[in-house]
Design a binder for these strands. Structure first.
Ligand SMILES: NC(=O)c1ccc[n+]([C@@H]2O[C@H](COP(=O)([O-])OP(=O)(O)OC[C@H]3O[C@@H](n4cnc5c(N)ncnc54)[C@H](O)[C@@H]3O)[C@@H](O)[C@H]2O)c1
Ligand SMILES: NC(=O)c1ccc[n+]([C@@H]2O[C@H](COP(=O)([O-])OP(=O)(O)OC[C@H]3O[C@@H](n4cnc5c(N)ncnc54)[C@H](O)[C@@H]3O)[C@@H](O)[C@H]2O)c1
Lengths: 208, 208
DNA sequence: CGTCGCTTGTGAAAAACGTCACAAAATCTA
DNA sequence: TAGATTTTGTGACGTTTTTCACAAGCGACG
């Protein structure tokens, strides 16, 4: 029941949630920390310590009720509700993300698409019309958008971020390979695939 | 000059490399740990500690020679050469990745594309013809492929991984939302965007 | 009801990681 | 050449995160 939670704990909670969904699909009703650990590349003690930050959800001698723990993890991770998301940048990566069904199944609902290209503005993607960047502030306000998926070229990313922050955005999933400057109350997660490839080549070179 | 390097150090080295390229573009010849720290959201002591794992590259009173350190980081990260990469899964995310120029500019060269869809097999993407999964082993062998970018549905991912591992693959950038089982000499980096969105909604919910 | 087997929750110990502080090395100035 | 100035490299220190170990809680069963 502590205050500051390690980022690594959060990543593991997401894994536990996914494992619980699998286990529920197998028709099981309870699960032990040891089994969650096995499915998640961690240890039973780590599972229990992670969960203990948020309360005590298990029964000694028995384990955790799968459905109960699943619901608690949804609450902890904040995915027990719908999040309104805007996609900024209707390019190659943006179009792949827009059609990716995993977001919506976790409650991340894309309610707006923005692009600067005059050829794209006005086009329909599914039920959504692509909007120009000038409308960013009004879209955030009128649609209750809290999250941005930012998939624009690096040189446009900071400027858009500044406007989004001004309009009250709360979190940004950033695909542009730059470090966005945001005030401390705005959360940013970076997706940097080149860095991940570099981690692979480092690991391989190291052992080699 | 130590043995086991923290993953967080490797991530920061990638950032330093990117900063050095920027600094070189500005025509500067030397840089201090303090300036690298400012550009990388870390501290000067951290920069020096990170680098000290691999040797001592600076000059006291002066700092680091930009070009020299850049080249050393390229070597350390293993990107001072070309890596042959195969793209497995020519779907939505696969097509975005294939056209992403940042990979090739770091020496990650896509030399093969594989897909199981009979409609896609045989089609040309740029200069490459899409291959069927049966050819995975022979492609790895004949083209010297060391890295996979795995962009297939989750239920196909483990099976392809097993075959790739059998054929000698060394690293996998995995987009499928499952934890791949691989022997310890194979490196895996997972890209899991849903988990990153969950980290955002957790952070926002927490402060809220 | 008492005991037995199982599994949690959690302080305490250990390990990993980051920060601090300063001697040493280099340049610059005069 | 001496002294002032700058900035590295690194051991010592502090904090965070993981692992360990076990008392306590729960169900089952005779
Ligand atoms: N393609 C990939 O696989 C990939 C992977 C990881 C990261 N990224 C990053 O994602 C970003 C987009 O990459 P992409 O490959 O989709 O590029 P892209 O050129 O295909 O798409 C970018 C889109 O952003 C739009 N845009 C440009 N300026 C804008 C602005 N000011 N406001 C709104 N929209 C604007 C463009 O019109 C275009 O439609 C880049 O930063 C890239 O580095 C791409
Ligand atoms: N679309 C996204 O934005 C996105 C983002 C992150 C992760 N992912 C993940 O990436 C993977 C692919 O997603 P997608 O959206 O591109 O799906 P997709 O259906 O558009 O593409 C998948 C491709 O893989 C091919 N395929 C299927 N089985 C195969 C096999 N055994 N061997 C070779 N190829 C095979 C299919 O023919 C198809 O072309 C999924 O695991 C998904 O969860 C997708």
């Amino acid at each position: 029941m502590s205050r500051r939670i390690p980022a690594s704990t959060i990543r593991r909670l997401s894994h536990y949630l996914r494992s619980l969904e699998d286990i529920e699909g197998e028709g099981r009703e309870t699960v032990s920390s040891e089994e969650l650990a096995d499915r998640g590349q961690t240890t039973a003690a780590q599972v229990r310590k992670d969960l203990s930050h948020f309360g005590s959800f298990g029964k000694r001698g028995l384990g955790y009720r799968v459905d109960e723990l699943r619901v608690r993890l949804l609450e902890i991770l904040g995915v027990d509700r719908v999040w309104k998301v805007a996609l900024i940048g209707a390019g190659r990566i943006g179009s792949a993300l827009f059609e990716y069904p995993a977001f919506e199944s976790r409650g991340y609902e894309c309610v707006a698409i923005v692009d600067a290209d005059p050829e794209k503005i006005g086009a329909m993607w599914g039920a959504l019309r692509i909007r120009p960047p000038e409308e960013i502030e009004s879209l955030i306000g009128s649609l209750g958008i809290e999250l941005f998926i930012l998939a624009v070229p690096a040189q446009a990313a900071q400027q858009i971020t500044d406007r989004a922050v001004g309009a009250g955005i709360k979190g940004i999933l950033n695909f542009a390979p730059i470090r966005l400057k945001v005030p401390s109350h705005v959360a940013v997660e970076d997706v940097n695939l080149v860095m991940q490839l570099e981690a692979l080549s480092f690991a391989i070179t190291q052992r080699g």
